[in-house]
């Protein structure tokens, strides 16, 4: 399901304008980012935890050229599924319809 379908579903369920829905989704993402900026991890009960982790700088060797490349440190957004969601997903049969 892509973004448009997702927004449509949201707006249908909330009986809202899809534009308004998109706006709220965007501001919600903004709110989450500002929470991350403050150094928080965002835990949504029954869904999972969003967390920003620091990846250390590292040296990799380019497999093609054999050159050593220093990759800088970076901050990465991680998602960890909650146990509730995990068990729900686990029990679900893998879809073969697609």
């Amino acid at each position: 399901m892509n973004n448009r379908e997702f927004i449509d579903e949201m707006s249908a369920g909330l009986k809202m304008d899809s534009k308004e829905t998109q706006r709220l989704v965007n501001s919600m993402v903004d709110a989450m980012v500002s929470l991350f900026d403050e150094g928080n991890e965002v835990c949504v009960a029954g869904f999972g935890t969003f967390e920003v982790k620091k990846k250390n700088e590292r040296i990799i060797v380019h497999p093609g050229t054999g050159k050593r490349i220093l990759v800088p440190p970076k901050m990465v957004l991680n998602f960890k599924q909650s146990n509730v969601l995990k068990s729900q997903v686990k029990g679900k049969q893998s879809q073969s319809k697609e």
Binding site: A31, M32, S34, L35, N40, E41, V42, V44, A45
Partner: peptide
């Protein structure tokens, strides 16, 4: 550790 309520508060402010 922020919870869903923090998002809700921030969203109410921003949106």
């Amino acid at each position: 550790r922020a919870v869903l309520q923090d998002i809700i508060n921030a969203l109410a402010e921003k949106g």
